[in-house]
Computed example of a mutant assay.
Amino acid sequence: MGLLVANGSCIAQTSVTPYGILDIGVRPLWGMSANNAPVPSSYSTSLASGVDQTSVWGIKAQESLGGGWKALVRLEGGVNGDTGTSAKSDRLFDRHAWIALGSPYGTVALGRQPNLISDQLMLVDPLGKRFASFNPDINIAGLSNTKFGAHSFGTQYGPSGYADNFYRLDNTIKYSADVGPWQARAAYSAGEVAGNASAMSSHGVALAYQQDAWAVSGATMQLRSREDLALDAWSLGAALKLASWQFKTNFARNHADTGIAKTVSQRVSSVGVSRAIGHGLLVTAAWYGVRRAATGWRDDGFNRAFLYVEKTLGPRTTAYLEADTTTWLADAAGQTAGQPNDRHGSGLTLGLKQKF
């Protein structure tokens, strides 16, 4: 009998939760390919994954250690719902793979984790981090995909494992603490380059202040390449609620040394509004402007606008209609087989999202 009671106590203090999201939609495209890159003027139809929310699967675990202390684990991988493949073919858990110790004084997490700008954007991105593969706050401000047009950073900064994608970092130590309305974070990622502790490393801090009706959130980071070239990035945004309306805006900039006397600088401005209408209906509109200056290239960038209409069908199921349009500036549209791509691209998605 005593063993059964002890076992029940352990179960009550420990939890392991598998979870996932599957989001798939039918997506007609004009002037863009299935991966949303500009192409010579054309029309096509594709099946897209993760337009409303990224398709993922994962496991969360937590164990109470007493006295306000707890151990946490999270493993999460991206999924291409349209093909059933992993988002990253070289990693099972490309999004999260960390263990943490939580206490009344904050939480320390060790492993592969999103960078601090990703954390900062949770409160203030106008789209609420929807459409991660096409959202400029995630791609450009958050450093998830800095490659577009005729030029890119072309190298890896920080221990992300990929060139032009530094949104999640290996070997990361992240400290986070909530003190009243304040949320503070600091992180360091080890580059693990023999003989050079600075190369491929990253470090930064983030701070947010959140009330019921408004929030301000900012982060700054520095990342290094294997050649010890610096990439400096910062992001600052705000959110405001007025009755059933919500307004969000964010401004971000990054500057990278890409070689001897060579640099790339990028800026992102974004603004958006959302409104709940009736029962379970949410409408969101957002605009993003991206500008880039790179040594040896014309200044370029793009403007992108989104409209979302989401209908909650059940506690875990959402249907949605999404529309987007992009205008690439200067040489940002690039070329395909020597032929200039269309400077304007549009997409429309009718999708269904299920959380489990």
Rank of each mutant, 00 (worst) to 15 (best):
76 E>M: 06
77 G>E: 03
84 G>D: 11
84 G>E: 11
86 S>K: 08
87 A>Q: 14
90 D>R: 11
90 D>S: 15
91 R>T: 12
93 F>L: 14
93 F>N: 07
96 H>L: 12
97 A>G: 12
99 I>H: 04
100 A>G: 14
101 L>H: 03
101 L>P: 04
106 G>Q: 07
107 T>W: 01
110 L>M: 14
111 G>Q: 02
112 R>M: 02
113 Q>G: 06
114 P>R: 07
114 P>D: 04
116 L>I: 12
117 I>W: 00
117 I>R: 00
118 S>R: 07
118 S>G: 15
118 S>L: 12
119 D>S: 04
119 D>A: 04
121 L>V: 13
122 M>H: 15
122 M>E: 15
122 M>V: 15
123 L>R: 05
123 L>C: 04
125 D>N: 10
125 D>P: 01
127 L>G: 02
131 F>E: 08
136 P>E: 01
138 I>T: 03
140 I>C: 03
143 L>T: 04
143 L>N: 03
143 L>A: 06
152 S>Y: 12
152 S>F: 12
153 F>V: 09
154 G>S: 11
155 T>K: 03
155 T>F: 07
157 Y>S: 00
157 Y>K: 01
160 S>Y: 00
161 G>T: 02
162 Y>D: 07
162 Y>C: 02
163 A>Y: 06
164 D>K: 01
165 N>Q: 09
166 F>N: 01
167 Y>H: 13
168 R>N: 09
168 R>V: 05
174 K>E: 05
175 Y>H: 08
175 Y>A: 04
182 W>L: 08
185 R>W: 15
186 A>P: 12
192 E>Q: 14
192 E>F: 09
192 E>H: 11
193 V>W: 03
195 G>H: 11
